[in-house]
Amino acid sequence: MGKADRLDPDNNPWHWLAVDLRIWRLERNLSQAQLAEILGVDDSTVSNYESGTSKVPERKAEILDQLWRTRGHFARIHRHAETVHDPNWFDQYTRYEQRAEAISAYSALVIHALFQTEDYARALIEGAQVVDNVEETVAARMERRQVWEAAHAPEFRLFVRQSVLEDPVGGPEVMRAQLGHLLDLSQRKGVVVRALPKAKAAHAGVDGSFAILRIGQAEHAWSPAVNGGRLVSDPTKVRAYRLRWDLIGDDALSRDSTRSLLRELMEAMK
């Protein structure tokens, strides 16, 4: 069974858009290569659209409506998909995470999952009291860290609030080890960690955590939420996330100052 055959268009509007794209293309006897040329993308991108692996951008949906005279059909589905809760949001995000060539993330409440130690992750998951199998959830989170071991690990830029670094999640010993792990990762090639100081209480990240992932020439933005989350692929909307990211960077400490802060906090937790 192919990926396109596993889609659930009745319950997932992004799958609905993918299925309709494939149906309309086949009805017009167009190959994926021919449609790719019309949309200005490569063949694999159309394949990813139709399998639900990648989301059809808003501008491409509008082009489809113009091309096939569908009176806004694809654009309407796209608008609907952007506004409703996506039941598969986390699975989709982690697939993007594993493929990303570069990740820019801002952590407002906890240290980003890819930087977490096992003990820190366990303390968070146990404290939240929302999952039945803590160890299974911890293992799944640790598995995500395999991106660091890949032959081509992503470039990673992390902004994190200072208060996140000071919260003694799991107790001083667990938190000290977590800060040490973060310090070690910050010294890896291609990894940048910068703290947003407490003195900067009003800033562009007050609305919460988010990440921007680059895969090839495309960028996707992700923001978490309670019992849900949102993935955004439309270039115009992603640019808004990128602007917010840049503004946070304007207020963040330098890399060296952040490392000094990490060492100071580790010393204070002895």
Rank of each mutant, 00 (worst) to 15 (best):
V147Q: 04
A177P: 04
A140T: 14
F156K: 02
R239V: 14
L196A: 02
E136F: 10
E82R: 14
A153P: 14
R28C: 11
V131A: 05
H80P: 09
A81V: 03
V174P: 10
R28D: 04
V192F: 10
H80Q: 12
L64C: 08
D234W: 09
D5P: 00
W14E: 09
F90G: 01
R144Y: 07
A199D: 09
A177L: 13
R188I: 11
V19A: 09
D8Y: 01
A102W: 11
A33K: 05
H203F: 01
I212Q: 04
E166A: 13
G72Q: 06
G205I: 02
G171Y: 05
V174F: 07
Y106Q: 05
A151E: 15
W148E: 05
I212T: 05
R214H: 03
S257N: 15
E264Q: 11
T137C: 10
G249I: 03
R239L: 15
T236F: 15
R176M: 08
T236K: 07
S209E: 02
F90Q: 06
G180R: 10
M142C: 09
V226C: 02
S186Y: 06
S233A: 12
V193H: 03
R239D: 15
W245N: 08
I103S: 01
T70K: 01
D184W: 07
R144W: 08
V138Y: 01
V84Q: 08
D43L: 13
F156D: 00
Q92P: 05
G228E: 09
M1F: 13
K55M: 11
S186F: 03
E155W: 00
R244T: 12
H203I: 03
E264Y: 00
G52Y: 02
T53P: 00
R99Y: 09
D246E: 12
A177C: 11
S31W: 03
T117M: 05
S31H: 04
G208L: 02
V206L: 12
A36Q: 08
K55V: 11
S223R: 13
A199K: 12
A204G: 07
T45I: 11
W68L: 14
A252C: 07
I103Y: 06
V130M: 14
R25L: 11
P57W: 01
A211F: 03
L26T: 14
Y96Q: 10
E173C: 12
D246Q: 08
E173H: 15
R22H: 06
R59I: 13
S31D: 02
A33S: 14
G190K: 04
L182V: 07
L39V: 05
A128N: 08
P197Q: 02
R79I: 07
K60W: 04
S54W: 09
R263C: 08
S186I: 02
Q187N: 11
V174W: 11
H73F: 15
P197W: 04
N12F: 07
A195V: 04
F156G: 03
V46K: 04
M1P: 12
S31T: 15
